[in-house]
Design a protein around this nucleic acid. Structure first.
Lengths: 249, 249
DNA sequence: AAAATTCATGCAAAAACATGCACAAAAACA
DNA sequence: TGTTTTTGTGCATGTTTTTGCATGAATTTT
């Protein structure tokens, strides 16, 4: 077994389980613990993991509970939430994705809104709880702990059985040519199903996400009906989208 | 379990509940109290929490008085939660119903528990979020706003596709002759499915619910494997159940 | 004030570690 | 091809870290 191979294996283990133990790796790769230690040391020096007594942990192991997490760019998201929440009409069927921006959208729905909202996001569902006339349908599946959204077959099947009026899709990145992109494959599949199941597609997005790209493509830009941002309508960063006929809000 | 892992778990507990008790952490992480004390000391030195007599509190914002006792019924539920959480074995498939008592059960699962847990309760799912080795499957459906649980066909179908090892069923009422009863028809149907899908049926119940009756019957008493209460095992109110061969915990 | 917890300290055992060294395989070079 | 150099590995060594336990002090509860 080559050193490189080992390094890859170790890294994937770290990604998968958030931690690795020196002893376990030594056994499963059948090399001495000293070798593993040296591997971990190297990987730590390259910043790919954090070495600790007994093994190593993922460098990003910072699973701060979702609801207590300091919301990034909160002010901007509130502005977006207010604007986006205006797009829903009475009695519509709505699909709402996860993400802190979408939570703000949900929060700003008018109290008297009467609608049926499908979501796979726990924070969104909780937020909708105090809208008396909203029927909330939660789409079940495997729960991603960090994002607090469900993914997997069940969610996708449920979405595929839907024809919604409007869909609010949270996104990590939005690029005029590449489109809507995501970093997590499972979430990508769910989001694809969502946009296909809906007549209207609304993308609430904070400024800094525009023009960035992630590995997995959810859909091309022309599929978008409206982009909701905190920017001026005539902002140059939005121009390519405006030229495609997408409504800028 | 790595020291750093413990530190992360402790911090997330602190963030979530504002406080942690040395004794509880020692139990749930299965290390000695001394170790926990040393952990708390280290974290306090790094400024990540504030160490106090008996445990630690969130170093931040709201200076909640530490030892203030919570509501009385809550105390009882904590006792029940601790007891009931011992009933799960590693690698089991678990069904967890909603209700505040079940939330306490989830809260007291050992941090290192490795299991697959199906639930239709948002608070339970959220509580399980910081158990790194628990896979959470959320069962989707129509969300009941006040109870924060899902009900309906989808939930029931999903449960019917299951064969679980153990089921924690919250209940409004428990009567020796009448059995487990509920006030909401939709929830009743879901709970019926749950108990049918599981090998073992655990009923965590607070004292005042015993002997009361609600309109809809979920199941007769002999279906129960264990009743978890805060009472003494020989309490006369539990005698009829004990005589049926139900384990009293 | 007495009893019960909780804490700090020192100590010992086990585990994990760094270091230097020897040896083998691979790579580079002649 | 043969020799030298580099690299990777395992082992022996002494060191450091981590943990649980014992003791007595400090604190809280009764």
């Amino acid at each position: 077994m080559l050193k490189e191979e080992r390094h890859h294996l170790i890294l994937s283990q770290v990604q998968q389980h958030q931690k690795v133990l020196t002893v376990e790796l030594s056994e499963s790769l059948s090399v001495s613990e000293d070798t593993i230690r040296r591997d971990l040391k190297e990987l730590a020096e390259k910043g790919q993991l954090k070495k600790v007594h007994g093994g190593a942990i993922a460098h990003s192991l910072n699973p701060v509970p979702f609801r207590d997490r300091e919301i990034y760019a909160h002010e901007e998201k509130i502005i977006i939430g207010k604007k986006a929440s205006q797009l829903v009409r009475q009695e519509q069927v709505v699909i709402m994705d996860g993400g802190t921006t979408n939570v703000e959208v949900a929060r700003h729905f008018p109290q008297h809104l009467s609608a049926t909202i499908f979501t796979n996001s726990i924070p969104v569902a909780v937020e909708l709880t105090d809208h008396p006339n909203v029927e909330i349908i939660f789409m079940g599946g495997k729960l991603l702990k960090q994002a607090q959204v469900t993914v997997g077959e069940e969610v996708i099947e449920m979405i595929q059985g839907l024809r919604a009026d409007i869909c609010f899709l949270g996104t990590r990145s939005l690029h005029p040519q590449i489109g809507i992109t995501e970093i997590d494959w499972e979430e990508t599949k769910v989001k694809r199903a969502m946009l296909q199941a809906s007549n209207e597609l609304v993308i609430p997005v904070i400024t800094e996400k525009i023009g960035t790209i992630q590995p997995y493509i959810i859909g091309k830009s022309p599929l978008i009906s409206s982009i909701v941002s905190s920017m001026e309508r005539k902002d140059p960063r939005l121009r390519p989208f405006r030229e495609m006929g997408i409504e800028i809000i």
